[in-house]
Amino acid sequence: MNEFIFLFNSVVISGAVIGAIYAMGAIGVTLIFSILRFAHFAHADLMTTGAFVTFFLTVMFPGVGPAVGLPTAFVMLPIAMVLTSLIAVGIDKAFYKPLREHNVKPIVLVMASLGVTFMLQGLVRLFAGTGSRNLFVDDRKEIFRIDLPWELASRKIVITEPQLLLFLFTIIAVVSLHYFLTRSRLGKAMRAMSDNADLARVSGINVNVVVIVTWVIAGSLCAAAGTLLSLDVALKPDLSFNLLLPIFAAAIVGGVGHVYGAVLGGFVVGFAESLAVFNWAVVLRPLARAMEWDLPRSMALVPTEYKITVPFFILIAILVLRPTGILKGKVI
């Protein structure tokens, strides 16, 4: 029984945590891809930037959290989301818009976004250093250990407060995004833009507003994902490409342009990662004892050092087998 609780802790919970993070990133990537038609490489660093915005807010007002009973960083999250959205809109105005107006090929925008990646990376490390930090400045991370009622289960299910907040936030974000995209005028305009940009333009949709709203959504989700990830582990300035590859894999697996596809893809990639690096020997050990097998010490499908190969091969597999993604994306 204990073995299954171990499996639950290290596959189901950690897979769901990382999956939710990937999902939030992939929603932004997929929206930008379908509305602005380019792969936004600066997305992971926008997440890091968002997390650092939260960090600075938390350092400035460390007392807010204990007063409300939540981690300070989480209380500061809405402000950080607004600020990161402003940064995202500003980046678009300064670097992408002039290129778009020159009618460059989409790939040039991809290059520009790589330039932005390095600018954000440079700025974050210039102001905050290269070491990793803890988002809990004045408060402590709460960890819940849930006892199971069965006799054999002495191990406990472990879940932390940031993880619960992350699940809650993801559900709220996805549901409200769903209602925004299907019910509101602006959301419908965004979907029209992603279906056919020219047709949307001639039917009187204000393209600039749609673009700004896209960046606001992407930016706030970046801030949220970055902050919640750093709350759960630590605030690292060097995640960048290690986070970017799974996010792109998630967006492509789900089908580019599909918000629900991005969520689905995020969880697919997240669970695939945690299943691949899970040491199956732990679960098989009782069985092996009964059958008198000789099990190797580690039976992970992929050694932890090679975790980055998992999203890559998922990506390759989906490009070979079904390049449109699970939900039939529009842009190929």
């Binding site: 290129l99 040039v108 790589l114 600018m119």
Partner: peptide, 24 residues
């Protein structure tokens, strides 16, 4: 204390800025 390692990060920013400026 780690100002020197941060100073080198300023170069990262310059590379990024160069890419975007040249493209534009």
């Amino acid at each position: 204390g780690d100002l020197d390692s941060r100073a080198l990060q300023a170069r990262v920013f310059v590379i990024g800025l160069t890419i975007t400026l040249v493209l534009r």
